[in-house]
Design a protein around this nucleic acid. Structure first.
Lengths: 201, 201
DNA sequence: CCCTTTCTTTAGCGGTCGCTACAATAAAAG
DNA sequence: CTTTTATTGTAGCGACCGCTAAAGAAAGGG
């Protein structure tokens, strides 16, 4: 049951990973098709046939990024026993990854399209929506923490969620600027001092 | 004592301000010469004669930005009576400005060149150096606070300065994503909870 | 074998990029 | 006035952008 026609000569997922790294390092507009095809080891028509174009490739690369690297954010929020442990794990796990020399620094969702030409507004909006989802996930976990009695009843979960998201986004900028893991960790240690006092549990 | 030759027909500083807004909104690489000349109301040769080129214009626009908008950071650190008041003023003043509808949102130094092609590495490095200077200024002010007895002797000023810089950078991302001033203010309120306890004064 | 289908490479499309040669223009200097 | 100096608008440079037409190449179906 092989497909008809000539089989693809390259590994699609491997090429997608290479493209992800290029977008991650240079941003959407900073990554040219020449950069992408060189990294993927293919020619433009192969890219177009397999992925549809630059923007479609980017969106798929972002999806792949979220599946691989956005995973521990969702996992931490879901699996950690307390809201406090969840938020702490989100910050520390992401910070550790932001400086992993195995790939570009910082978060691709934060850094790949911070400024865009009007022609690529859609790309910017797409990543902004993903950032908003992260903030909502964190805020939702905090709300559960209030309901579970881990946090005071009068906790402003919106403010707290906005704060930790702000820190998370700031860590990406710091990582891209060359901050080391101990430096990021030190910032996280300070940030967690702001965790509300008066927990019941 | 007028200069020789034909006088310039446009206001140089006004054109520089217009260029700053374009760079601020679209980033260095996202701002084309056509965008810039259209906003400045001049033709490319006038831009080149008056400013030297795109990168030189950008650097001058950044300098102008720092003079106008970076001003209250330096002023707050210099004029506020305590380290605590200084850092709080830096955060609140900048946040208020990040969402000022009179100009693009967020901080130009943070957002205008977060990702660059290798050809424009110099622009990226220039802004990174400015961000580092901000962090060092904040950290220096914290160290003075320790020396003045406002902060505990064992305060990790590097960690605290890194934390507030992380928050400051994160606020730019949040502002660019459409966060309102109350939302940014709420994050700042939380961040200041992390201020070390045990001050003498 | 040939035909169909799909991927491959080559080559290049129209458009935009940052930048500049050139000639016309407008001022001061003599 | 003429000469000198500098800015102006026009018009277009070579290079690169994302993308694709065209033809060759590699598979299955007959």
């Amino acid at each position: 049951m092989s497909p008809r026609g000539r089989p693809r000569a390259f590994d699609r997922e491997g090429a997608l990973t290479k493209a992800m790294y290029v977008f991650w390092a240079r941003g959407y507009e900073g990554a040219s098709l020449a950069d992408l095809t060189a990294a993927m080891g293919i020619n433009p028509p192969s890219l177009y046939a397999a992925f549809g174009g630059k923007e479609a490739l980017f969106r798929e690369a972002v999806k792949h990024y979220c599946a691989v690297y956005g995973g521990f954010t969702e996992r931490a929020l879901r699996e950690q026993p307390t809201a406090r442990a969840a938020v702490e794990a989100v910050l520390r796990d992401n910070a550790r990854d932001y400086v992993d020399p195995a790939h570009p620094s910082g978060c691709m969702v934060v850094l790949a399209a911070t400024n865009c030409t009007p022609a690529n507004q859609g790309v910017h909006d797409h990543l902004r929506a993903l950032r908003r989802e992260t903030q909502e996930s964190i805020t939702r976990r905090l709300r559960e923490g209030v309901e579970d009695g881990e946090l005071p009843e009068d906790t402003d979960v919106e403010a707290l969620g906005g704060f930790f998201t702000t820190v998370l986004n700031g860590l990406s900028v710091q990582a891209r600027d060359g901050a080391t893991l101990p430096e990021l960790t030190a910032s996280i240690d300070v940030a967690l001092v702001a965790w509300p006092a008066g927990a019941r549990e």
